[in-house]
């Protein structure tokens, strides 16, 4: 079986790789602890898998946490139909390689009403295709715990969120009334219908993620590396111009250049950056001198200060 071969390869590579530095080791230990605790305390956990770099690290940590067993919960991919094609190909390959259970969900209402980022605007589109879709998928699976790859350094309201983030039966987050969370003693007690979002990567920064990917040799979507790619400029963002559904507006023209992505989401809403970083070393040194934050390329965070909090209160991850 190809699984076994890959595992064996990975293992012999692992045996020769240098040990993690104490900083990454501490972060890894904390994440594994959280994975095990949630898996043991909840009846129906699920892991949100968005295919990006944070999800890739999250998945790697889950595999480590439960080794030599299988990952004891399914992965949930909330698809919008507008992801980069390379992301979907990567996802399918990973699921096969690591023998994972994947659940894919697309909001049927959105699909039926043909909700697109072009026709409905980024805010409504995100609300229907991501927030509402996520609620539907979590309800359908009756999941009582959902792992996510969010990090506190991403955004000001995330910085306030607990590792076990409690949600009401309608998936609401009440930031004013979070449960105290002392030491690493997590309170997993909930009533039926309530749930918890668990964030094993809470204390990781963007640089930590990249250094860990490098140290652990974790596969990631190639879009993170600079390559000559076609793009158009729209609303001050560079949008990848590969998908035939992207219609050029008057005055727009396809260009080509060395670009890469710092975060991955729906291609019409995710801006690329100009970069020559073709290796992990390049990416890390680029980051260490970066003058803007990673969220800068995301249309959904730019509406106003506090927009992420609003989305989260409504059930966004």
């Amino acid at each position: 079986m190809s699984d076994n071969r890959n595992e064996a390869e990975a293992r012999s590579a692992a045996a020769s790789k240098p040990p993690l530095d104490p900083h990454l080791k501490a972060l890894e230990n904390e994440a594994i602890h959280i994975f095990r605790e949630v898996a043991a305390e909840f009846e129906r956990p699920v892991m949100l898998y968005s295919i990006g770099k944070d999800s890739s690290v999250l998945l790697h940590l889950a595999r480590k946490a439960f080794h030599p067993g299988r990952v004891p919960f399914p992965l949930l991919h909330v698809n919008t139909g507008w992801k980069f094609a390379e992301m979907i190909a990567f996802r399918d390959e990973i699921v096969k390689r690591y023998d994972l259970d994947l659940i894919e969900h697309i909001n049927p209402r959105g699909a039926a009403e043909n909700v697109t980022p072009f026709t409905h605007g980024s805010a409504r589109y995100t609300d229907i295709m991501k927030t509402e879709a996520l609620r539907q998928a979590l309800d359908a699976g009756k999941y009582d715990a959902a792992f996510g790859g969010a990090r506190r350094d991403e955004e000001a309201s995330r910085a306030k969120e607990r590792i076990y983030s409690f949600r009401t039966p309608d998936h609401r987050w009440d930031p004013r009334n979070q449960r105290p969370e002392l030491w690493n003693v997590y309170n997993g007690m909930i009533n039926r219908g309530e749930s918890v979002r668990a964030f094993p990567l809470s204390n990781w920064t963007e640089v930590d993620i990249w250094r860990y990917i490098q140290a652990e040799n974790i596969p990631i979507v190639p879009l993170y590396f600079a390559e000559k790619r076609p793009y158009i400029e729209r609303d001050g963002m560079m949008i990848l111009a590969e998908d035939p559904r992207l219609e050029l507006l008057p005055g727009e023209a396809k260009q080509e250049g060395l670009i890469r992505f710092r975060t991955l989401g729906c291609f019409p809403l995710t801006g690329a950056i100009r970069s020559t970083a073709t290796t992990l070393d390049d990416i890390i040194s680029e980051l260490e001198t970066a003058t803007v934050s990673e969220r800068q390329g995301r249309a959904i965070d730019r509406d106003q200060s506090g927009s992420m909090e609003k989305k989260k209160r409504e059930g966004y991850f």
Binding site: E155, A156, A159, K160, P175, R176, S305, G306, E309
Partner: peptide
């Protein structure tokens, strides 16, 4: 970073 904190000019939860 919370809206309530910005409105009231105080910290409510740990960041």
């Amino acid at each position: 970073g919370l809206q309530a904190e910005r409105e009231q000019g105080i910290t409510i939860d740990v960041a």
